[in-house]
Amino acid sequence: MEYGLILEWIIKAVLMLLILLIGFAYTTYLERKVLARMQVRYGPNRAGPKGLLQPVADGVKLIFKEELIPAKADKLLFILAPVITVLPALTILAVVPFGGTVNLFGREITLSIAGDLNVGILYLTAVTSITVYGMVLAGWASNNKYAMMGGIRATAQVISYELALGLAFIGPILLASSMSVNEIVNAQGRMGWFFIYQPIGFIIFLIATLAEINRVPFDMPEAEQELVAGYHTEYSGMKFALFMMTEYIKMIVVAVLAATFFLGGYLGPFVDQVPWLGPVYLFIKVFILVFGIIWVRATWPRFRYDRLMAFGWKIMLPLAVLNVLLTGAFIILFPGVIR
């Protein structure tokens, strides 16, 4: 085993965590600012120039807050639940390539942590579902009936939309004939971005991921008007911050995944000549998608819970199966297009 390799892994992992943390901080800022502008307000503008230091101020404030643990709560699970929730969000992106291969300090470095993993998509689907455990444990350990209801609702919703999400992954796999995320991006370089071939799949992916990360209009588990704050009602201070971190990091994560599977990932003009452009292109695509998620929040009201579940099971699931069949038929009918 080479020490340089281990050092490279550690540096990449630290960089990934730093990027996600900074991304989390400034997604909260972006969301508050964009929502404010859409409602003709200013948004945060006191801490630092244009309010740019607001996320730092929020973080410092949360560190010095009192943390309450309800009297009859399960203490161990209560502390463990936010950790279980945040871990998958931090590790999902390990298999996603952020760019091609760059030459740095005389080493060939691929801009991903484990991009060539041949079961990349299996890893993605497996890791995303772990977050559910954190939610339901948080709800149960709080010993609060609203938290519990929020946790159970979150579980039912996330697993219902996971079916459609899992089927939406099938389209890109069919077109690229591989479960490796790297290979899927390369295939998009050969035959064009997959959202051209997968318009239904792309829309299903966007809707299902919105439900998966509990964002508006699918934020039923945290419906403020009826469930206080859902599964993290009893959480305060830094544990609350961990839940918020999960929510916003997952926003970034699903944007990265949508960009990677349907919008060509890090690909763009001249990316072959200048590999450093890769992360820039990916950042632009992710920024647009995250902005879209925030826009949706500013625009749409919340779904009613029964309609939400009916929509997931009666429309999304059959549509996703149909999309798989259509893609299969397309590949057989037009073998020349798929390379």
Binding site: W9, I10, L17, K65, E67, V83, L87, L90, T91
Partner: peptide
């Protein structure tokens, strides 16, 4: 191939631990 993911997982666990510990140390 999975070792880099293990490295990331350990560091992420460390980060979550630090965040929780910060709250315990400085919160009243």
């Amino acid at each position: 191939e999975y070792l880099p993911i293990a490295v990331l997982l350990i560091l992420a666990l460390l980060l979550a631990g630090i965040v929780i510990a910060l709250g315990h140390m400085f919160g009243p």
